[in-house]
Amino acid sequence: MIGFEQCTKHYVLDDEERVILREATLLFEPWDRICILAPPGVGKTTIAHLLAGFTRPTEGNVHRSGRISWPLGFTGALHPSMTGERNVEIIADLAEAPRNRVSAYVAEFSELGEDYHRKVETYSSSMRARLGFALSMAIPADTYVADGNIGTGAPSFRTRCEVALEQKLNEGAGLFFLTHSPRLAERFGRRFAVLQGGKFVLTADAEEAKGIFETQLVEQDSLQQLVEGFSSE
């Protein structure tokens, strides 16, 4: 089993304490396809980073075993002063993935053309994102972690990303997907949960998750209106 066990994560930002997880537990098999619905701004990226192994919980345990991917499209490990190709080759070697095959796949998937052989610092944000996503798909994983969206950039490339991920999932890989899009959750998930008060609330199906999530959004909007009302007075 992988996932979160009695996990608390909080940090202080601008003198304000932000609690992302509060003794939250969610354990699942690496091949499960879990989608977590969560409104914007509640710490989806932090949770994805916890499972990806980038950060540690304040309390509790994050269980990681097997090959858990970086969050799809992650570009933080690409060094700007090296070419896209060199970055990919190094990461492939470190992940013990076949370097030439990975590099060829990334070059083709990312559609970077000659730019693939140029330094990453010369890339636009969209090129960097394409490289990051192609790399995510090229490095084999037992469980893919996704944060927000599947894919990036233009609709055609986004579709390509979604199809590529679907193929990986059909081949038996698992998915841990944090999103605020019920449509994407329903498409890629098999088990569903909602992030509520820093805890994972597992639901019976996508419909129930969607219901709770929409109520959450309405409450958030009402609260927002109330706060704005007070501040305008």
């Binding site: 060094h79 002063s81 090296m82 060199r86 080759e89 190094i90 070697d93 470190l94 013990e96 330094k119």
Partner: peptide, 21 residues
């Protein structure tokens, strides 16, 4: 061989990143 490949990859990354290549 796998271990050596990883050591080489780390060294290449260091050279490429720290000395700006």
């Amino acid at each position: 061989p796998r271990w050596l490949r990883k050591v080489k990859a780390i060294i290449l990354r260091e050279i490429g990143s720290r000395y700006t290549g």
